[in-house]
Design a protein around this nucleic acid. Structure first.
Lengths: 305, 305
DNA sequence: AGTATCCGTAAGCAAACCTGAAGGGTCGCG
DNA sequence: CGCGACCCTTCAGGTTTGCTTACGGATACT
């Protein structure tokens, strides 16, 4: 009988690309992974890996095996979830990742709510960009993710993921407060923000991609002078009269900022959703976490400008 | 992550009943099985076994786990079959079981055909009663089974089995040759065989159950004086003028017997089929074996009386 | 009551696994 | 073009895991 542990190594290799990465992800030495895969190859009697430069490439047979393995791993996880669900109380540990504004605005309250209701449930929270978080979720490094979806921007798709909307929040342009200087005060729409410095998230994020697209549609290429994934820094840069930036309502939940807000064309809203793997979607820990989030986060986030 | 090897032990326990039987089936010591199940119990954190007299009983949680495990094992097997199917040649080993008349009439030829076409395919053949064979097939102790199905007699059902008809053969009553004695010569139908000794297979077999039912419908309870699962012995007992017996055409393929044959009411036919587990139904070894059987066994067995 | 069967625990032992070091090959950069 | 960085593999080693035997408690059958 094929060993699932070995099959898993192959699946991880397919997902991560190099044998060294697999080893690091599973906290093993590359040597061990190599040996195990060699053993698997010997067992099935069909070559699974071919050398490709200094890396390895999966053969067609290996791809077939990976396909089955994905199913098997999901089923194994589902089995574990199902049987722990039969236990008396929601316990165990759930690894959650959220992006910054949710972490700041709602997680303290959500966590307090969770530990009060389920003292034996251990929640490990990490802050992670949505794209990375979904990726790690698919790789079973996380159990629950709060991610975002910008309008008309195809969110990355991963198989076996269970997504549920959490809330939506308005996206606006944030300008320095009135009196910070004429160049800011003259701006009354996005189209007029072509000649001022911007603060944006790093390239590769959905946020960056989306706002750049909006700028181009408005007729200009933004001058990105400040680049950071810390949205709090964006706010600080705008408040202090150094830049304009995209600002979502989620960031304004904790403390009202002095920034000036301008509606974007079409009053766009970002969708915030939770995601987990389908195999564990019914496990008590996941259900409890989602419920806590739903209690804490308003279904429709509407803040006065 | 749950170890599949341990889960398998639990599944086998569910199928076999006692921990000792599981150990024997997997060629291990009962102690080992007990330890592994204990480990599994510790891992899931939920009790899986309760003492029931000197045996153990599965808890509801364990049953859930078994259900998932069955799926996982099937998938694992399918993965292995799929990847070996990609290999250049049909090789490996297939464990086949057939019942007596097929073993005698057709297997020598079928085996010769197989080893000629696929020299690297190793076939392990055993002779086994259909009920037992199907049972062992479901338990993964066999890979391919040739079994029978009597008309109006519900064949035992096992999940995950792939059945395909192989042939049908006529069922008749066999009497001693003319001249063996008046008590035999006077019989011209089943209804008149109520006061003569019978040779039958042991109770619990489909054959026994079916012919007894036919006798009762004909208005008598048969006197079973000779009981053996060796159908060749039935023939010998009939030929030598000691009994009457049910005789299928399959038994007459090799050598014509001197027995006298009488049609049964409705000219009933038995169905002979091959069965394998769905997970491995597409593996080259299984396909090759089934093909060899189909070549050797006529689709419809019709022998002159 | 006696016996056989079954499950669980303890201790010794063998196999499997993982680690670390060394080697060969490839890619990228100066 | 040479060097370093990176990656995979092999080999020898220690450690963990799992298996086996032996023993004891409990239960069913005769």
């Amino acid at each position: 009988m094929l060993e699932v542990r070995r099959l898993r190594l192959l699946a991880e290799l397919a997902a991560r690309g190099t044998l060294a990465e697999v080893a690091e992800a599973l906290h093993q030495s590359p040597s061990s992974v190599s040996q195990q895969l060699g053993q698997l190859e010997r067992e099935v009697g069909v070559p699974l890996l071919t050398k490709a430069g200094r890396r390895v490439q999966l053969t067609a047979a290996a791809e077939v095996l990976v396909e089955h393995t994905t199913e098997i791993l999901a089923r194994l996880e589902a089995a574990e979830a199902a049987v722990t669900a039969l236990g008396d109380e929601t316990a165990g540990t759930v690894r959650v990742a959220v992006f910054q504004s949710v972490a700041l605005a709602y997680m303290p309250q959500a966590l307090a709510d969770l530990t009060r209701r389920h003292p034996r449930l251990r929640v490990m929270l990490s802050q992670r960009a949505p794209e990375q978080a979904l990726h790690d979720l698919a790789l079973r490094e996380l159990d629950l993710v709060v991610a975002e979806h910008y309008p008309d921007h195809g969110a990355p798709h991963f198989d076996g993921l269970d997504r549920r909307p959490l809330t939506t929040d308005r996206l606006r342009l944030a300008l320095p407060p009135r009196g910070s200087g004429a160049i800011w005060d003259d701006i009354t729409s996005l189209a007029e923000a072509g000649c001022v410095p911007w603060a944006m998230e790093p390239p590769g994020t959905a946020s960056r991609h989306w706002i750049e697209e909006q700028c181009r549609r408005a007729g200009f290429e933004p001058e990105v002078r400040y680049e950071t994934d810390d949205v709090e820094a964006h706010v600080a840069l705008v408040e202090s009269g150094n830049a304009v930036a995209l600002l979502s309502d989620l960031m304004r939940v904790r403390h009202r900022t002095a920034v000036r807000l301008i509606e974007l064309p079409g009053s766009p809203r970002r969708t915030v959703f939770t995601a987990t793997r389908t195999a564990i979607a019914d496990s008590p820990g996941i259900i409890a976490c989602r419920a806590a989030l739903a209690r804490v986060v308003p279904a429709d986030l509407v803040l006065p400008t």
